[in-house]
Simulated scan of single mutants.
Amino acid sequence: MARLNGKEVEPHADYGFFGPGSVVWKVWSYPTAPTVGFQRSVVVEELDPPLVAAVHGTQGIYERTRTRYDRTLRYFAMVAFAGSDQVCKAADVLVKVHSKAIGHLPYGEGTYDANDPASQLWIQLTGWHSILYAYEKYGPGKLTAEEEKEYWESCALAAEFQTCSPDDVPRDRAGIRAYFERMRPQLEASPIARQAMNHLLDTGLVLPPTAWWMKPARTVVARTHRIATIATMPRWMREMAQIRQSRLLDVLVVPVMRISFALAHLSPRVELFLLGMLSPSTVTVVAPVKLGVPPRTKEVLTPEQARTRHGYAKPAEAHAEFRARQAVRVFGDGKPPSDQGLIESQEVLGPLA
């Protein structure tokens, strides 16, 4: 049994939904995924008005930046690497967490709901696209045509753990481009979107406290990470969000990041140490994969098989009564939503503070 930080690494129950040899494990286990890839996804997401309204309404990214980043990254890593029972449980409790993020749009008419399928599709596609983009730009490079086809098929499979429909997930790069073109007129860099994007670009907010003599290095790491993430964003998006960065920095940061990630990837334990600095709770999810600890049962399941075996409803159908009560509290009674989902999620997604 492999050990990490003096403790035995607990195996997953099974291989989950992808397993060894899958393109998902190949891309998501590279150090670009939890760093530039993940940061890019949460930054780009904020351009969607309903999503940023939900983010702004809960204030989680401002009041508990580090734990919010940690919990969100843990969830995405679980879908990629964890056992089927863990993933089903996480997806189920996430519906209850998102039921808190409802309200009236701060700009214009209408309401927002973090469980809305359109918002969930936006999160799913920006996340998976950003992870792949960072892998291609700062990692080993382009996938083969067969690998890319598998990647987007896997994205559709993973969408079954969101409230969106997997049928709406494009199955190739052309389809992904078409989706973002359709979304572009709906995107908006409102004041709360710009505030959230700049906040989330500050990697220093999610790094652990350091001794005074390490602060200069910490600042360099955070600044370089910000440059690398901005360099992955298209010009029109940066202009919309009023994010400035020279083309020279865009070019210079590429070899720096490629070399840094390649060196980190030489040692699984170094990768896990660096991951622990960004997202401590994600280490236990990734460690069995990085250290070659086999699951208790060597099988890969489909989402339908997993839900039947473990007794969970599809996320789109889960907790309908609870979500309805939340809507009555917010839209009918004018009260804040219940925190029940957040409280219950700590066992699965990690502590809130």
Rank of each mutant, 00 (worst) to 15 (best):
Q305C: 05
N115D: 02
S99A: 08
V328M: 00
T297F: 04
L263Y: 08
I61L: 03
P268H: 09
I243C: 12
G110C: 02
R325Q: 14
P337T: 05
H265T: 04
V9P: 13
F81L: 08
T297N: 12
P315R: 03
L272C: 15
A353G: 15
T284V: 03
R182W: 08
F273L: 15
T302R: 04
S279L: 14
K290Y: 15
A91D: 05
F180E: 14
L47C: 08
G311S: 09
H56R: 05
L266Q: 15
A189L: 06
A264K: 08
A228D: 00
P268W: 10
L263F: 08
A306C: 14
K100G: 04
K142F: 02
A91M: 04
K149H: 11
V221Q: 07
E181Y: 10
F261C: 06
P106M: 06
A134N: 01
V95R: 04
I243G: 07
S165G: 10
M78W: 07
S29Q: 04
A264R: 12
V256M: 12
R64H: 14
L200H: 08
P185N: 00
F331I: 02
G341R: 12
P34L: 03
A189W: 04
Q86M: 13
K26N: 13
P336D: 14
T58C: 04
W152P: 04
Y135G: 02
T65P: 07
R296L: 11
I176H: 01
G292R: 14
G204Q: 09
L207C: 01
G57F: 05
M214P: 05
I123P: 01
P216G: 01
A196T: 06
Y135E: 06
P303I: 01
W152V: 08
L275N: 09
L200C: 05
K26G: 13
G57D: 10
A118Q: 07
E239G: 06
F322K: 03
A327C: 11
G276V: 03
P315E: 06
G139N: 02
G292D: 09
V270W: 14
V253T: 13
I259L: 15
P288H: 04
L201H: 06
R223I: 03
A262V: 11
P351Y: 04
R269Y: 12
R269Q: 13
P268I: 12
E150I: 10
P294D: 01
I102K: 01
V42N: 06
A118T: 07
V27Y: 01
A189T: 02
R173L: 10
Q86W: 10
G108F: 07
V285G: 05
V206R: 03
M257E: 09
V36K: 00
S41I: 00
T32K: 07
C88F: 13
C155V: 14
Y62S: 02
S190D: 10
W236P: 04
W28I: 00
Y312T: 10
V256T: 11
E8N: 14
T297K: 07
F180S: 14
L352W: 14
Y179N: 04
V328F: 08
G21M: 00
L51C: 07
S29I: 05
R244W: 11
L249C: 02
E45M: 02
V206P: 04
V286C: 10
S84H: 10
T284R: 09
E63N: 11
A318K: 06
D85E: 15
G127H: 00
T282Q: 02
G175H: 00
S281N: 12
A33K: 11
H129P: 06
R309V: 01
Q120W: 02
